[in-house]
Amino acid sequence: MKSLSADRLQDLAAALSAAGYRVVAPVEADGVVRFAPWSPGAAIRTDAVPVNSLKDVFFPPSEAIGRWRRSGDGFDAIETRPEAPKTAALAARPCDVAALAMLDAVFNWDFRDSFYDARRAATVVAALACSEADEECFCTSVGGRPDAAPGADALLRPADGGRTLIVEPLTDQGRDLAAAASGVLQDGAAAPDAPPEVRRRFDIGRVGAWLAGNFDSPLWKELSLPCLGCAACAYACPACHCFDIQDESGPNGVVRLRNWDACGLGLFTLHASGHNPRPDQASRWRQRVMHKLAYAPERFKVAACTGCGRCGRVCPRGMSLADTAERIAAAAAPAAGPAAGVPA
């Protein structure tokens, strides 16, 4: 069994860096922990869920996907490749790793997204099993676990009361990572810590059944009333993947950008005519919930929510998908009667 003293995560990062990996990990800047490139000396924060998710490593907020230079009266295309350096993503949470199934599916659905795929192929993911959960965590409600990360290349499992991290390679890439870091890994037994208890908030099957028949439920209006219509939840979400394409020109040519976009924003579905098929926050919030818990499972056999709880942590009004799902589950309960009669 290979392991690592928990306070030597930085040494692991340094060893991987020396072995040619770009290391991304939860690091703190100005009081906020983010998934960001690690630089020597930066502490890797395993005590906090980063405000952004692992998604950012593969699908950044903005990236150039095409470029053209001016040439006479026209433009010549410049071949645009993704920046995809060999990368090690350290200490990603199981819920973030779980979202990769959703992202892999949607970015390779009817079109293979070379930008996403290139970074995915160049990145080895070493997940960190959770040692604590907060009130927003609900991975167990959507089929996840705090102590397993299927889809990761390696798992760092807290042991000996948090003093040790057991390194469990899960794939060849993970074994390569462990080999590259062999200098900082030690042999010997360690007792894995018990995973934290993550309260099961709702029955996802019951929620799905309610969603199938309640597109026009008045509950949507009530549930969405606190929503202010920003994109904080979507941008923090490890599984949200909507984007907008914008061309920006300069004196030398044009750059085509892919920027994050979100269904909570009114502009998202606004037509040029002025018509908006999702005219209010109720229809936008419904779309968000439906997409995550009805459309994605139907199309990709995977929920677009992994219970990371970031939506509830970043929402200026404290709204979370779990709260909504809980209310829906209650509405779906046979004893509660029709949806409109849900007690508050």
């Binding site: 410049i78 040519g253 950008l257």
Partner: peptide
């Protein structure tokens, strides 16, 4: 953002 000068 513009195409790199050496490419222009």
């Amino acid at each position: 953002l513009a195409p790199a000068p050496e490419e222009a």
